[in-house]
Amino acid sequence: MMSQYLFYFLTFVAIFCALLVVFSKNPIYSALFLIVTFFATAGHYFLLNAQFLAAVHVIVYAGAIMVLFIYVIMMLNLNREVEPHKSTAIKIAATVCGCILGLVLVAALRETEMSAISEYSNPGIGLIERLGNVLFGAYMVPFEISTVLFLSAMVGAVFLSKKSIH
């Protein structure tokens, strides 16, 4: 019962803060509300017994990605005054398009038959031990390739932020 209330609370926080990310005028407020949304998502991971992913989510998103975002916002000195404005017609069109997308997704997935849910569900699948065994067993090669991805991302970031490219 307790976890149900927690689920609804986290859902409310996630959706409310996601809306505020989109509709707040100041980019720094958007970034801060996005951090709250990430924490709510991490709470959902905890509820789903994915402790390892919850920890990684907080570290990677709230710790690394959002710090990068806020750093860039502060470096570019973005605030409410320099925020570009879109015309009202485009805003209404965007909102209607997004709502239609949500409607289509919900309508398509609402009637899905979830027949294959196993009764003997194993609560320990999100633990770091099981996950590590799978990650370093079956997914060893993709894991190594992701390090190459990080290296190329690092090289790309350094190359792009050089002052002049000759």
């Binding site: 959706i15 990310v21 989109v22 805003k91 965007a94 997004g98 709502c99 949500g102 997704l105 919900v106």
Partner: peptide, 13 residues
Amino acid sequence: SILFSIGAIGVLY
């Protein structure tokens, strides 16, 4: 679905 749609609205908005 709702979170994804909010993200899509944000990209367009």
